[in-house]
């Protein structure tokens, strides 16, 4: 069996470590080289994953002929240059969400991938979670009739690092946590958002430079109503990192997805309650599907365009929160 040969561009995003674990585990993938602009992080990852080829210049990694694909998990604002270069070097790519912090950057990324005929998948892992996938099938079969409302939350703890440094992240919890469920809503409705209204409140953690709460109300072109709670509203001792929750009201039924609810409750003496997850491994499903998409020359389930559309919803939400107005899409 031919292994797909991967490079990882930066371990700045916490998800990189999970993806690397998957690559090490898969029989049809190999982690060949890694890049990071943080020397310590680079060496730490090299040691953790046993990677010999380490780079502090991503162009050099991308120049290697023996790499088929890269996973770009740098700080959000750095994706664009790296993705363009990857496409120009003919590498297929998975780009962490949000794919960029500016819409014109996202457009450039989508266009350059098309021009160089490389696969561009957005790391919308939630499209690869078995719970959301099962519900996708149910909706396609008309299980609950037509969709009327999708209420969602993507709560989380504060991820720390650079996530509230706007010049690197593009914002706070809103840019970090809007795209996942916005994308699921687009996927389920097969439609685009027509308008967005959003509010941001006083910060839970007053020391942050970016927002850590946000609420979004939106409407699709076909009239479906949606909402997103994208707050980092879980304190550090909450039993799990956060949630992805959807309540889908249809004309003939109601479906609730609580994707990270499958947990064993664990308490170690003297420590707070912890939820030990035993649900679907979405990271693994996503990377496996990416390999299939490249091998069989298919369109990714969550494409670069999907990443761009979800970013647009997020940017519209910021525009609304800043102006106090209802924002029509497209921007």
């Amino acid at each position: 069996m031919r292994k797909m040969r991967f490079g990882i561009i930066s371990f700045a995003h916490i998800h990189a470590w999970g993806y690397a674990n998957v690559l090490k585990e898969l029989e049809n993938a190999e982690l060949v080289a890694i890049y990071d602009d943080d020397r310590q992080r680079l060496l730490k990852a090299a040691e953790r994953f046993g990677v010999k080829n380490v780079y502090d210049d991503y162009e050099k990694l991308l120049s290697r002929d023996d790499i088929d694909a890269v996973i770009i998990t740098s700080e959000n604002a750095k994706h664009v240059d790296q993705a363009i270069s990857a496409a120009e070097h003919g590498k297929h790519m998975i780009v962490e969400k949000p794919i960029a912090v500016r819409l014109d950057d996202a457009d450039k990324m989508v266009n350059v991938a098309k021009k160089h005929d490389v696969k561009f998948q957005t790391a919308f892992v939630m499209r690869y979670h078995d719970a959301t996938l099962t519900v996708k099938k149910m909706l396609e079969e008309g299980n609950i009739g037509d969709i009327l409302v999708i209420t969602t939350t993507n709560h989380g703890k504060y991820p720390d690092l650079w996530f509230a440094e706007p010049e690197l992240s593009g914002g706070g919890s809103m840019i970090d946590h809007t795209v996942h469920t916005a994308d699921l809503m687009r996927w389920y409705t097969k439609d685009e958002v027509a308008e967005v209204y959003a509010i941001i409140g006083e910060k839970i953690r007053k020391e942050l430079k970016a927002e850590d709460t946000g609420l979004i109300s939106l409407k699709f072109r076909n009239g479906v109503v949606g909402s997103i709670d994208c707050s980092w509203s879980r304190h550090d001792t909450w039993p799990i990192w956060g949630d992805v929750w959807l309540g889908i009201i249809g004309t003939e039924g109601y479906i609730v997805i609580d994707a990270f609810r499958p947990n064993v409750e664990l308490v170690v003496k003297g420590k707070p309650l912890v939820w030990q997850y035993f649900g679907s491994n979405a990271d693994k499903n996503m990377i496996l599907d990416f390999i299939r998409v490249v091998d069989e020359d298919l369109e990714p389930r969550a494409s670069g365009w999907d990443g761009r559309q979800a970013l647009e919803i997020t940017l519209a939400a910021y525009k609304s929160a800043n102006s106090g107005m209802v924002i029509k899409l497209p921007l």
Binding site: Y197, A198, I199, G201, E202, L215, S217, S227
Partner: peptide
């Protein structure tokens, strides 16, 4: 559904 802004900055 409604999004509320409170005077004290809560939402």
């Amino acid at each position: 559904h409604a999004l509320l802004k409170f005077k004290n900055g809560a939402i």
